[in-house]
C-alpha cells in the first residue's frame, strides 16, 4: 500500500512543481501580442506565398495592424470580402481594385513551335534560360520546365502534357504573382479578371521581327499592327514588334481577335461564335 502511495506522491509532487515552474516561466516571458493579429492570421490563407511582399502571412497580419491605413497592403490570395474583414479587424477601410488572374502569354505548343534541339539539362526554366536560348526557334517564349508550377503555392498551374505549356486554373489562381516572378522569360502576366472571367490578350512575347518570329512559331505575334488599327479604344500598343493589350483599357470587343492574321490574340470564356472555332487556349 505504501508502495502505491509513494508512487502517487512522488509523481504528483513532481508534476505540481514542474507545472508551477512552467506557469511562472510563461508568465514571466509572456509575449504581448495584439489579439487582432491572431484573428487576421486566421482569416488569411496561410500559404505564405509572399505575394504581399512580406515574408509570410503572420508578418502581413502584423503589418496590417501596425500601419496607419491599408495602402500598399493587399493579400492577393484573399477574396474581396476577406480583405474587407481583415481591414475591419485592423481598424482600417479598404478600397479594392479589380481582381486579377495570371495569364500565360505563350501558345508555342509542340505543334505551333517546332523543336530545333533537345534540352536535357536540369529541369528548371531558370537553368535552361541560362544555358541557351531554349530548344525551339523562339528565344522568348515558354521553356516548359515548369518553374511556375513549382512556384505556385495554390496548386493553380499545371503543365499540359500535350502542349508542353502551363495552364492556369482560374478557380484556384489568386493572382499572388509568384509564377510571374518565377518565370525567367516573363511569359506570365497578371491581368484583370473582368466579368465572367472573360479575357482578351496577346498570347505571345516574341520581340523578333515578323519573319523571324513567324518562322519560329506558327502563332507568334509578327508586329503587323492590324490589331492596333482595329482597336477603337486605343488599348493596343505596338512595341519591339510585339502588340500589347492594356488590360484596363480593353473593353473586350474582340475586334482585334478577328483581325490578327497569326491568331495570336486569344479571347477566352466568351460564348462560342458560329463562324469562329473554339480557341485553343481555354484557361
Amino acid at each position: 500500500m505504501t508502495f502505491i502511495v509513494t508512487a502517487v506522491l512522488v509523481l504528483g509532487i513532481t508534476g505540481l512543481v514542474i507545472g508551477l515552474v512552467l506557469y511562472a516561466v510563461s508568465r514571466k516571458f509572456k509575449v504581448e501580442e495584439d489579439p487582432r493579429v491572431a484573428s487576421i492570421i486566421d482569416l488569411l490563407p496561410g500559404a505564405n506565398c509572399g505575394g504581399c511582399g512580406f515574408p509570410g502571412c503572420a508578418a502581413f497580419a502584423e503589418a496590417c495592424v501596425k500601419s496607419e491605413s491599408m495602402d500598399g497592403l493587399k493579400c492577393s490570395a484573399c477574396k474581396k470580402e476577406v480583405m474587407q474583414q481583415v481591414a475591419a479587424i485592423a481598424g482600417h477601410t479598404v478600397e479594392l481594385g479589380v481582381e486579377k488572374i495570371a495569364v500565360v502569354k505563350c501558345s508555342g505548343s509542340c505543334e505551333n513551335r517546332p523543336k530545333t534541339g533537345v534540352y536535357d539539362g536540369a529541369s528548371s526554366c531558370a537553368a535552361a534560360a541560362l544555358m541557351n536560348g531554349g530548344d525551339t526557334g523562339c528565344f522568348w517564349g515558354c521553356l516548359g520546365c515548369g518553374d511556375c508550377v513549382k512556384a505556385c503555392k495554390f496548386d493553380a498551374i499545371k503543365m499540359d502534357p500535350e502542349t508542353g505549356l502551363p495552364v492556369v486554373d482560374q478557380e484556384k489562381c489568386t493572382a499572388c504573382g509568384a509564377c510571374v516572378k518565377a518565370c525567367p522569360r516573363s511569359v506570365i502576366e497578371l491581368r484583370n479578371r473582368n466579368k465572367m472571367d472573360r479575357r482578351v490578350y496577346v498570347s505571345c512575347v516574341n520581340k523578333d521581327k515578323g519573319p523571324v518570329a513567324k518562322k519560329a512559331c506558327a502563332v507568334a505575334c509578327i508586329g503587323c499592327g492590324k490589331c492596333v488599327k482595329a482597336c477603337a479604344f486605343e488599348a493596343i500598343t505596338l512595341e519591339n514588334n510585339l502588340a500589347y493589350i492594356d488590360t484596363d483599357k480593353c473593353r473586350l470587343c474582340r475586334k482585334c481577335v478577328d483581325e490578327c492574321p497569326q491568331h495570336s490574340i486569344l479571347a477566352v470564356n466568351f460564348p462560342l461564335r458560329k463562324e469562329k472555332s473554339e480557341p485553343t487556349d481555354n484557361n
Binding site: G121, A122, S124, A126, A127, L130, M131
Partner: peptide, 12 residues
C-alpha cells in the same frame, strides 16, 4: 544528376 546546371544557376 545535372549538378553543373544547378550550380551555374545558383552562381548566376
Amino acid at each position: 544528376r545535372p549538378l553543373l546546371d544547378w550550380v551555374r544557376l545558383a552562381k548566376n
